[in-house]
């Protein structure tokens, strides 16, 4: 692999930036591996590679996104995220100022989420062999005693809750990428959810499943859960919070907000009798102000996820294999 002068500068820049903004005892060890203190109990690990175009979008950038994505995956397991590692793949010639912005954003996001960056790596690839920056992060968290959340625990009768508005991230990315302007600017919802999940767990509600509806949107997430648990899910469209501007953009683009990615939302399934308590806990947290009860789990051997529409009809909430392909013949 070629390491031009630019490449070396990039590697150095990242190392320095992390040291400046996130300097901690673990990162400072300087060995091939980082040695962490003992931890009694179960650990949760999650890893995610982040690729986004554009790298800077309204409401965020790939830097904070790469922290939020992994922190959230650990958090929705019910765990307290503690550490993060980051791997960068950079395209040679990528502007250093942009790189600095990304790393600073990452550092800020990690600090806000209360996680420590404990290891990192950077590789530089030739121009044309990457797309600016790819960032892979791995998160490690501590799972408190007694917490057991899993996609196969949803039971008929359970309540389905959503922490806030749908579709903000995906639509923000699209409109920025294609220079589409809307009356109200649409911001990505990228955010760390570990504060919210901690508050939810503290409420004492019997939570069965938590998941962040990222790629594939709420539709994919709920279909996964329905199949894992062998249940059906009924949603109520009128109860699903969507910002009017996101709704309008989806109308224009012909996209279904339920299929669009979110980066700062979670869906939770809990015992019906605890729904109110959980909803109150969510709404009391800044990340869950727009939380809503959006549906319920039902018995259904077909594992259909379906939605009562605003017009009173019912429709399937589809689990798409990829992008939304036209199908009206």
């Amino acid at each position: 692999m070629s390491h031009g002068g630019g490449g070396r500068a990039m590697v150095q820049l990242i190392t320095d930036l992390f040291a400046n903004h996130l300097g901690n005892e673990y990162l400072a060890q300087g060995n091939d591996g980082t040695c962490l203190p003992p931890c009694t109990g179960r650990m949760v690990v999650s890893t995610d590679s982040h690729v986004v175009s554009p790298l800077f979008f309204p409401g965020g950038d790939i830097g904070c996104l790469s922290v939020h994505g992994t922190v959230n995956d650990v958090a929705v397991m019910g765990a307290t995220p503690l550490y993060l590692t980051a791997g960068f793949i950079l395209e040679e010639g990528f502007p250093l100022e942009s790189l600095a912005r990304i790393v600073e954003s990452m550092a800020r996001a990690a600090k806000a989420a209360g996680v420590k960056l404990v290891a990192g790596d950077t590789k530089v690839v030739e121009q044309g062999k990457g797309d600016g920056v790819f960032i892979t992060t791995t998160g490690v968290g501590f799972l408190p005693e007694g917490v057991h959340l899993s996609g196969d625990l949803a039971r008929p009768g359970d309540a389905v809750l959503l922490s806030g508005t749908l579709g903000d991230h995906g639509v923000a990315i699209l409109s920025k990428r294609e220079n589409l302007s809307f009356d109200a600017p649409i911001l990505s919802d990228t955010a760390a959810l570990n504060g919210l999940t901690a508050a939810m767990l503290a409420s004492g509600a019997a939570i069965r499943v938590m998941r962040d509806p990222t790629r594939g949107g709420l539709a994919a997430t709920l279909n996964e859960i329905a199949h894992q648990s062998g249940v059906g899910i009924h949603l109520d469209e009128a109860a699903i919070p969507i910002k009017p501007e996101v709704d309008a953009a989806c109308e224009l683009l012909g996209l279904d907000p339920l299929n669009i990615a979110n980066e700062g939302k979670l869906v939770a399934i809990c015992a019906a009798e605890d729904a109110d308590r959980l909803l109150a806990a969510m709404r009391a947290h800044p990340q869950g102000q727009a939380a809503a009860l959006i549906g319920k789990v039902v018995e259904d051997p077909n594992c259909f996820v379906q939605m009562k529409t605003r017009f009173g009809g019912r429709r399937m909430v589809d689990w798409l294999s990829g992008e939304q392909l036209p199908r009206i013949c």
Partner: peptide
């Protein structure tokens, strides 16, 4: 109301699958 934006969609080939 979205005629202007639809034009942009066409120009940018944004969710405009050909048929």
């Amino acid at each position: 109301p979205v005629a202007r934006q639809l034009r942009v969609m066409l120009e940018h080939n944004l969710h405009c699958p050909p048929t």
